[in-house]
Simulated scan of single mutants.
Amino acid sequence: MLERELACEVSDISDWLRKFLHPIERVGFEAGTMSQHLFFGLQAEGFDVVCMEARQVNAALSAMRNKTDKNDARGIAQILRTGWFSPVHMKSREAHGLRALLSSRKALLNKTIDLANEVRGLLKIFGLRLPKTVSHGSFDDIVRPMIQMDDVLIHALVPLLDARVALYQHYLELDRRVKRAASHDEVCMRLMTVPGVGPIAALRFKAAVDDPLRFKRECA
C-alpha cells in the first residue's frame, strides 16, 4: 500500500510512516548492523518495533523467485503480518558501549602485537634476536639501543617503534577504562569474586547477557 526508498535514518522513516493514511500496528525489520539504531530510534518515535531473526527471514525469502530489495521488503512485510518469525532481543545502549570499549581495547592490543612481531622479523634478517618473552612495556627500551648504531635499521624501524608506542599508550588508556568500569559495576564486582574471573571476563559476560534480572538470579 506504500513503498518508498529511503535512507536508513530514523527521522526519514518515521516521517513517511506518519504520512501513511492507515494506522500502523507494528514496524518490523531484519536483524543487521543498523538494528539498534533503528529499533530504539523508531521506538522513541512511538512505534511498536520488532527486530526479526535474520536466519528465519533469509529462509523465508529464499523461496522467492526474483530476489531484489523491493521483493525482500515485501517479503519482510508478509513475514511480519503472519507472525512467522522469532523476535531478536535488542541489547541496551550500555551493553553495546561496553562491547565497543572491549573491542577497541582488543584491536589496539592486537595491532601492538602485530607491530612488535614485524620488528622481530626485521631484526632477525640482520642477525639480531630478541628474547622470546618481552613485556609490552619494555619492548621499546630493548629494541632502540640495539639499532641506534645502524642507520639502515634506524630509518626502517623507528617509524614502526613510534607507531607501536602510540598504539600501546592508547591501549593502556582503554585498559584503565575497562578496569574502572568493572570496579564501578555491582554485577562485575560479584562476578570477579569467582576464582579466575577478572574485569575483562566480567564485562564481556555482562555485555553478552544484558539482562539485569538474570544477573541477579545467577549472581545470588
Rank of each mutant, 00 (worst) to 15 (best):
L2K: 11
E3C: 03
R4P: 00
A7G: 12
C8R: 05
S11L: 12
K19L: 14
E25D: 13
G28C: 15
T33S: 13
L38H: 04
G41L: 07
L42R: 00
Q43I: 01
E45A: 13
E45Q: 14
G46N: 05
G46K: 05
M52Y: 02
M52G: 02
A59P: 02
A60E: 07
S62G: 05
M64N: 11
M64P: 00
K67F: 06
K70D: 06
N71I: 15
A73M: 12
R74I: 14
I79A: 06
R81T: 15
G83V: 07
F85W: 12
F85N: 10
F85Y: 15
S86Q: 15
S92F: 08
E94H: 12
L101K: 10
S104D: 14
L108D: 09
T112F: 03
L115D: 10
N117H: 11
E118N: 08
V119L: 02
R120C: 01
L122C: 02
F126S: 10
G127H: 01
L128H: 02
L130D: 01
P131E: 01
S135R: 08
F139L: 09
D141N: 12
I147C: 01
L160H: 06
L161Q: 02
D162Q: 12
Q169F: 01
Y171R: 02
D175Y: 00
R177I: 01
V178H: 00
L191T: 01
P195A: 01
P195K: 04
G198L: 09
R204G: 01
K206W: 03
K206H: 05
A207W: 09
V209C: 03
D210K: 11
D211N: 15
E218D: 08
